[in-house]
């Protein structure tokens, strides 16, 4: 029999992705021993906090959390404040500041709004981190949606290169409602992984390398989401019901087959 954690992940892959947070909470209530592993391995839409010293919004996830406080990438302070919260080493924090500046530009260029946050932490043979991006279109609009990117990576230092491992999740939620259409909700998430070796001269190279990997990955995932959300979903509806009468479609196909076979004779 499968491990309970595998069954929990299988269940979350099937239930409505829009309710993922509620479903995770429910599974934890039913089997509290799964809590730690579920919170680590399931991506939920990112929540937003305001950094009180810089007055800038930042994104929260398990990686900038210490107890019930979250570290701001802008000030390195925890919100709400705590004593001796875990912060990165000086070298890693320097890189983190650079990465946050770079992804703030990235965010503006691709999302034209929204919020970005990058968190880095020290590892024995290098460092690891996550790049978070979130954008919601106006919730009062008839056509609304939200995009959450969660890119988690680690970088292993080697001679003049580094080996990067990136796991990316995009949570995309779209909804629309009108008299003619009724209600429509199209929500979900997709996950992809990639590994790559890239040249490293100094810590600035790391920021550029991670930037390139995330940019390539988001381009790939955006195309994939477009294909699944608007291509695949529409095709399945067409498989369930045909607008043109099937007798006409079948007759056309028959005629086509006869033409092809008469030509090949």
């Amino acid at each position: 029999m499968a491990e309970p954690i595998d069954s929990a992940l299988d269940l979350l892959r099937r239930l409505n992705p829009k309710d993922v947070k509620q479903n995770v909470d429910n599974i934890i209530n039913l089997n509290p021993s799964l809590e730690e592993e579920l919170l680590e391995s399931v991506d939920i839409p990112l929540s937003v906090k305001r950094c009180s010293s810089t007055k800038r919004d930042f994104l929260c996830c398990d990686y900038n959390r210490d107890g019930d406080s979250w570290r701001s990438p802008w000030s390195n302070n925890f919100e709400p404040p705590i004593d001796e919260g875990i912060t990165p080493s000086e070298r890693i924090r320097k890189m983190e500041i650079k990465a946050n500046e770079a992804f703030d530009v990235y965010r503006e260029l691709y999302f034209e709004g929204g919020i970005s946050s990058v968190y880095l932490w020290d590892m024995d043979d290098g460092f690891a981190g996550c790049v978070l991006l979130k954008k919601c279109t106006s919730e009062t609009a008839v056509n609304g949606g939200s995009w959450d990117s969660i890119h988690v990576f680690d970088a292993q230092d080697r001679a003049r290169t580094a080996h990067y491992k990136l796991t990316s999740t995009v949570i995309l939620s779209l909804g629309t409602e009108s008299e003619a259409l009724g209600g429509l909700d199209l929500s979900g998430n997709m996950v992809r992984q990639v590994e790559q070796d890239m040249a490293v001269e100094d810590d600035g190279s790391h920021v550029a390398n991670i930037g390139k990997m995330v940019e390539d990955m988001e381009l790939k995932m955006r195309n994939l989401l477009q294909e699944v959300y608007f291509g695949k979903a529409k095709d399945v509806v067409g498989d369930l019901r045909s607008i043109p009468p099937l007798s006409v479609t079948n007759r056309d196909r028959q005629t086509q087959r006869e033409m092809i076979s008469s030509m090949s004779r």
């Binding site: 500046e101 770079a102 530009v105 990235y106 260029l109 691709y110 999302f111 034209e112 954008k135 279109t137 056509n143 609304g144 949606g145 939200s146 995009w147 995309l172 779209l174 629309t176 199209l186 920021v207 550029a208 390398n209 930037g211 390139k212 940019e215 988001e218 381009l219 955006r222 195309n223 989401l225 477009q226 959300y229 608007f230 979903a233 529409k234």
Partner: peptide, 28 residues
């Protein structure tokens, strides 16, 4: 489907920046 692809989806994230070029990360 077409309306969401052209509307809400596009306004969440562009396929490429307005410059139609990928970012030059070394010069970021």
């Amino acid at each position: 489907f077409g309306g969401l692809a052209e509307g809400a989806f596009k306004s969440l994230r562009r396929q490429l920046p307005i410059t139609r070029q990928k970012i030059e990360w070394e010069k970021i």
